[in-house]
Computed example of a mutant assay.
Amino acid sequence: MAEMDKRPIGMMDSGLGGLSVLRVLQKEMPGESLIFVGDQGHFPYGTKSQAEIRQLALAVGRFLQEKGAKMMVVACNTATAAALPTLQKQLSIPVIGVIKPGAQAALASGAQTIGVIGTESTIKNGAYDHAIKDLTTANIRVVSQAAQPLVSIVEHGQTGTVAAQRTVDQELAPLKGQGVQTLVLGCTHFPFLKKEIEHTLGPAVKLVDPAFETVKHVQAALKVSDGENTGRAPVVELYTTGKTTDLVNGAQLWLGGQYDSCSHIDLEVTR
């Protein structure tokens, strides 16, 4: 039997959103150690230029590589759209993003009209439109809507509030009457607003959280390289470029405190 690869899986996001992918990974791959970097010191990514996002994502990627990660999961749609090819070229470990898995899951729903909500950057980039068109020859209509303010609601711990519902209603109003059958939560912060989004759009619209499909991609990639760890003593390390209290609060809320440490880091960003 091949020896298990006990090295951790590295993950990144612009803030807390990536915890929505981390919690699925923890559930589906309980033997894996994880290193998560929330780049809260440079939050938000959604309003930054593509070049800036690439530099930040590369700095995180190099940090994860130095920490001995066996793979990098870009648990951020904005960074995936802007930086995935660069990361894959410049890092020596495999890198998986969330957009292609999200597009595959949306297509698997069988919808003819797919809605996508994301940050300004992801929507402007047309990342999901391109990914969906690359994956199918069928005539699928994609309706995209930037919903940047929702990111801050999650980042500031305001999910489940009246203000959160009001903002979701406002941001998603343009999608009403568009015949959207499936909605891609095209920002890893958005699954934390699932209740509010369901309330706004009603039960007929199927919500797609790319995290589940992304984790399947991670599992498949590690199987190919014999890189899985099915042991049972995983270590989960959290790092932030911002305030540790913010990441700790998010981890308490969304990971149920299932982590080992949380530390502040400063990234070496090459301009």
Results as ranks from 00 to 15, higher is better:
Q88P: 06
G46R: 05
R54P: 03
Q104F: 06
G68Y: 06
K48M: 14
I96E: 00
I99M: 06
Q112S: 12
Q50R: 15
V98Y: 05
G38Q: 12
A51L: 10
K100N: 10
L64R: 00
A75K: 04
V37M: 12
L107S: 05
T80C: 09
Q50F: 10
M72I: 12
V74C: 08
C76N: 10
A57Q: 12
C76L: 08
L56F: 08
I114L: 03
K70W: 01
D39R: 11
G110F: 01
G68A: 02
T86P: 00
V98T: 14
S49D: 13
Y45S: 14
A75L: 04
I99L: 08
T80L: 05
L107I: 01
A51T: 13
L87Y: 01
D39I: 04
G41H: 06
L87T: 04
I96V: 14
A83D: 05
G102S: 08
K89L: 00
I114Q: 01
L84Y: 06
Q112W: 05
K100P: 04
L107R: 02
K100I: 09
C76Y: 10
I53L: 07
L58H: 04
A51R: 12
P85R: 13
T113L: 00
L84T: 11
K89S: 13
T86S: 08
T113N: 07
S109V: 06
I53W: 06
Y45L: 09
V37C: 11
P94R: 13
K48N: 13
Q88S: 11
K89Q: 14
A106F: 01
F43K: 15
T80D: 12
I53S: 10
Q55H: 10
K100E: 14
V98I: 11
A105Y: 02
G46M: 04
G110H: 10
G46F: 01
G97D: 10
K89R: 14
A57N: 10
N77E: 11
G61R: 09
T47Q: 15
M71T: 07
D39M: 07
P85L: 05
Q88N: 09
V74H: 02
